[in-house]
Amino acid sequence: MNERHASRHGQDFSIPARLLHWAMAVMIIAMLFIGAGMVATVSERHALLISIHKPLGIAILLLAIVRLGVRWRYPTPELPRHLPAWQRLAARLSHWLLYALMLAMPLIGWAMVSAAGYPVTLAPGITLPPLVPTSVTLYAALRFAHTWLALTLFALILLHLAAALYHAWMLRDDVFASMTSGTRRRGPGSE
């Protein structure tokens, strides 16, 4: 553990973790709306949204890798001890599921586009190599997974947000602040 970067009370997420969290929150929610919108329209928005979806997805993949490094390098605040065991377990599970999905979704998208034989175009003239060989069977499975995991991710984000707001507005503990302004401004913690 790196003392220099740990917060004074050990109760806040590190500054890099907080920056990554909020930047990626905006990107991932935007990504989910773009994805849902682009497959639901036959208008010119279809192509426009796809052209944003692909580079944004790769950006999320890169940031997710950085974020895993940050998670490993900096301490993560403990949940308050007053929480029931099932809530701590739910928090732990949902957080790892969120990490898994933010890594898996871009990889599935990249593999899916590759399996369909489409060029993986990030911008005009900038293409990524295919991640897997062309195979319609593989494409069909990945296409299916991409949709349903996206819906799972959106549901999980809503759950995560509801839980965060529950901590902030109902329990009024330090959980929400540990990812925003930090708990120091609010005086000593709950220990």
Partner: peptide, 30 residues
């Protein structure tokens, strides 16, 4: 804990506010 949980009826408004935030996001997605 730094502050006491709210008492009803404030708790109901706060719960409703959480529900509203989630409902708005889910509706926008739909």
């Amino acid at each position: 804990m730094s502050r006491q949980p709210p008492r009803p009826p404030r708790a109901i408004f706060r719960l409703a506010a959480i529900g509203l935030v989630i409902a708005i996001l889910a509706t926008a997605f739909a």
